[in-house]
Design a protein around this nucleic acid. Sequence first.
DNA 1: GCGAGTTTGCGAACAGTGTGCGGACGACCG
DNA 2: CGGTCGTCCGCACACTGTTCGCAAACTCGC
Lengths: 244, 244
Amino acid sequence: MEDQPFPSVWTRPRRSGRAQPALSREQIVAEALRLLDSEGIEALSMRRLGAALNAGATSIYSHVSNKDELIELVIDEVYGEVEVPEITDPSAWREAAGALARELRATILRHPWIISVLDELGLSYMGPKLMNLSEGMLNLFEAAGFGLVEADQAGKFLLGYVLGTASTEAAVLTRLARTGWDERAWSESVRAAATALVRTHPRMSALYAAQEHREPDEFRESSFTYGLERALDGLEIRLRALRS
Amino acid sequence: MEDQPFPSVWTRPRRSGRAQPALSREQIVAEALRLLDSEGIEALSMRRLGAALNAGATSIYSHVSNKDELIELVIDEVYGEVEVPEITDPSAWREAAGALARELRATILRHPWIISVLDELGLSYMGPKLMNLSEGMLNLFEAAGFGLVEADQAGKFLLGYVLGTASTEAAVLTRLARTGWDERAWSESVRAAATALVRTHPRMSALYAAQEHREPDEFRESSFTYGLERALDGLEIRLRALRS
DNA sequence: GCGAGTTTGCGAACAGTGTGCGGACGACCG
DNA sequence: CGGTCGTCCGCACACTGTTCGCAAACTCGC
């Protein structure tokens, strides 16, 4: 980090050395998260991360065995941002589930790089923060009136929808950030391309024409809300069937 | 490719040369897809792909400007595998939508590497095969009774659920393939880990205990079906409300 | 107080990546 | 026949994750 004109044995400054432990796993994970949020997935290299920590790249390996493991830790950290509402009154379930879904979406959109790392999630669900999230979700849906096993399925259903939808949104956002485009201009160009295909794809071109004057982000959000309501409706009629 | 003892100008075999065009975009995409399916995402390097085509790595760049562009082409190819059912009778919509959802899930699970490339999907929806898919989906939901704009939202809802759920499944599968584990053994170890957390996570440990003797893949599928039914229910009551 | 052992930091090196450059070559057009 | 064009590809560059081995510093038993 601090450059050294003569890297000779004598001139060595303080060897940076072992002053205090200097590096900790928490620090590393936090810095990785900051790097990811500000510059995206391809900015996270071990060398850059090391530099950001005023350390060498390989120093990280004392606290984390792998880049994959590091990413798992970061992902679990992100899961920790999601707060699961607690309810006692079963009639409050719908609002609570909706709030959970919205918060999960917001979390994904706050860290859009997470979708390029989705294939690591298969194991990371053993992470403590995700365990808490799952536990809270089971709690929520049990309080709503589902049995334990069905509460799990209901939760997976809702989270599946949110994950799929928000992933698509995040893909658009990262693409825009990478190319430096504006979301409005981009959707204009898509609309133009779609309207050029009237003959083969009449509904698509009609669809884009109908949405000419909508703000893209407001449109994305209202689409999300539409699906969320349908999902909650589906759960609600199932709950009604269970009660009778 | 064919090794040459003396790479001198005279001894040169036939320079392989320009016999026939030898490489085409279709060929490259097909070979990339084969490579991805058989060995996963990290096996796809330009050098390996070139070698698989009996060509040099950089030859590919004449037909495709980028690795990212190549991946977009491959993704669109995969979308082409999804067949959208056509209906005329509105009452057949539920079955048709369910079939579409199942087929999309099957397609994702057939190409599980696709989730590690999800962040490219943001633009690739301009690909012709995906356009066809979208057009067909709009058709389906319009025939079911939705207006054009709402048909789009309904389709995004259903596909969002499928994408999210199948992504999670694919993540598990690729993880297993990478580590060489068996799905059954893996779910056993997860269950063991979960039951050890009774104090802090009672519902999770109870949940895993209750599912001790289920076959993991059958369980995944039934969870998917559960969510699919809820999603279709949600759409159905909306349709009923529209009709009255 | 002091040597032994463990932990941490890190420079060098290795195998591998995507891709720009420039040359070579075959095919086609005038 | 000459020139231009598109394709093929070896080389090189800047980068990646990770291993190895060594040096420094902290911890602990005596």
